[in-house]
């Protein structure tokens, strides 16, 4: 009974919470009026948009997801220095390349997250996904060893995502 009630009137609880938090952050206040307005928005907007949702794989382990996010942040920080060195260094030695990366994960959201991670970690930009979602094409700024790069992306980013979404 309670379950059916919440599913009817609170279809996206996590998104409602995020919406509420972002509203308070945007207004930078904890005034009663804004809390009320934020609550109305956080309850009302999911009711309007929940029919448009397409089914997505659920996050299995929130702890793993958090660890993944922290790892990506760390990688962005560390590896940015590498790209900075490349930009200052001699252009003649650059060895750019297009690489096709075979995908093991499926589903729109996990592939999007993997592609965004690849774009944000320096040295690689994801360019296109093949129509059957089996291949991800990436452009590499400086390629030394293709097999090693693919293996690194697979073990460092794809395997944790696979565990997080369980697909």
């Amino acid at each position: 009974m309670i379950n059916a009630f919440t599913r009817r009137w609170l279809p996206m609880p996590a998104q409602s919470l995020i919406l509420f938090a972002v509203w308070l952050l945007l207004n930078n206040t904890l005034a009663v009026g804004h809390i009320l307005l934020g609550a109305v928005l956080a309850l009302g907007i999911p009711l309007l948009v929940s029919p448009m949702q397409s089914p997505q794989p659920r996050v299995r382990s929130h702890l793993r997801a958090l660890r993944y996010a922290l790892m990506v942040l760390y990688d962005i920080l560390v590896a940015n220095f590498e790209v900075a060195m490349r930009v200052i260094g001699p252009m003649g030695r650059l060895q750019p390349a297009f690489v096709a990366l075979p995908l093991d994960i499926e589903g729109a959201v996990p592939i999007t997250i993997l592609a965004s991670t690849i774009s944000l970690t320096p040295g690689t930009v994801s360019a296109e996904v093949s129509e059957d979602r089996q291949w991800l094409y990436i452009h590499v700024l400086h390629l030394t060893d293709e097999a090693q790069l693919i293996a690194q992306i697979k073990s460092r980013y794809e395997a944790p995502l696979k565990e997080i979404f369980g697909c």
């Binding site: 962005i76 920080l77 940015n80 790209v83 900075a84 930009v87 200052i88 252009m91 650059l94 750019p96 774009s119 944000l120 320096p122 040295g123 930009v125 360019a127 452009h139 700024l141």
Partner: peptide, 22 residues
Amino acid sequence: FGLLRLPDFFTRLHAPTKATTL
């Protein structure tokens, strides 16, 4: 600087998206 200096479009794409964001 990377946007200005790197030799072709695809390499140029690398510099602004990452270094500038950071």
